[in-house]
Nucleic acid binder design. Structure first.
Lengths: 161, 161
DNA sequence: CGTGAAATTAAGCCCCT
DNA sequence: AGGGGCTTAATTTCACG
């Protein structure tokens, strides 16, 4: 379930989802139809959740990033929905350790960041927060689908030229 | 630079980048050609960095997530490249606060997580790490391009039908 | 708006089980 | 024998000048 060819297709599509199925098939040693079939099945199975665009955060006024550790009883009400209702929040995770939640935020300004923090504080069960402001982002990249224990083909799959 | 129509286009494409320019144009009150033009310019300007797919991490053996606070002199050598060379690392940020770096990790198992942590420790200047394991992810979503101080059009922008 | 390319569907073949 | 996956071919839609 998700073999090496699927992984190769996923990696190619992560890099550029606009390329044709002809190019995609050629890259993994398949016909366009077969490549199309595999991609369709990957979508149906939910392996590919959606095809989307990567937007530059700065260009759309989201240049300020921060992480917030949230303390409190977050088992109670629907904390997930409460967090999701705040637009500036990009990610929310339940964590093991000192705090109980870790939240990733993106806003235009530090003032907007303040507003988001107030919003978090107003959620039922939240007793405290600790904010980590991002000064510079080295990189943010998609989930790696190759190099998983198995050796990746070094220079492209060569099957039937 | 990036007006309301552009934002609407970006939002639509974030949700589904496979839709046709006909549908895209109709959604924002533009002809297919005009929509195509705008999207092309957004790509050229780097606002749209790339078109990609969202892959289910569990399906490709990346079910374990963790955040790591890294201590040390990370101004020295090329810390960014050293971190990028470790496949399990998805994000790396320079932060303000107790630690100097915050790193997001995705691996198949906790053993692989251990290996990544060892890799981080081996980087020049790193003196310590503190790991936060994710128990459950509420959500991870793309950067919001709407609702930015300005009121979003409630039912689609209507310009020139 | 037209042209040409690409997505998508259908039919048939081969291989593996 | 059966089924899944690939190829080839035909149709329709869409990208793009």
């Amino acid at each position: 379930m998700v073999d090496d060819i699927d992984r190769a297709l996923l990696a190619r599509l992560q890099d550029d989802a606009t390329q044709s199925y002809v190019a995609l098939g050629k890259a993994v040693g398949l016909s366009a139809g077969a490549a199309h079939d595999r991609v369709r099945k990957l979508r149906e199975r939910g392996v590919i959740r959606r095809t989307t665009i990567d937007v530059d955060p700065v260009a759309v006024d989201r240049g300020v990033s921060a992480f917030v550790m949230v303390d409190g009883n977050t088992w109670m009400g629907d904390t997930s929905a409460a967090l999701a209702a705040i637009p500036g929040i990009q990610e929310a995770h339940v964590i093991a350790g000192a705090a109980s939640l870790l939240v990733k935020i993106r806003t235009a300004t530090t003032e907007d960041l303040q507003a988001v923090l107030r919003g978090i504080f107003d959620i039922d069960g939240v007793t405290g927060t600790q904010t980590i402001v991002v000064l510079e982002t080295f990189f943010e990249r998609p989930v790696r689908v190759l190099d998983q224990g198995t050796q990746p083909a070094p220079s492209g799959a060569r099957t039937t030229p």
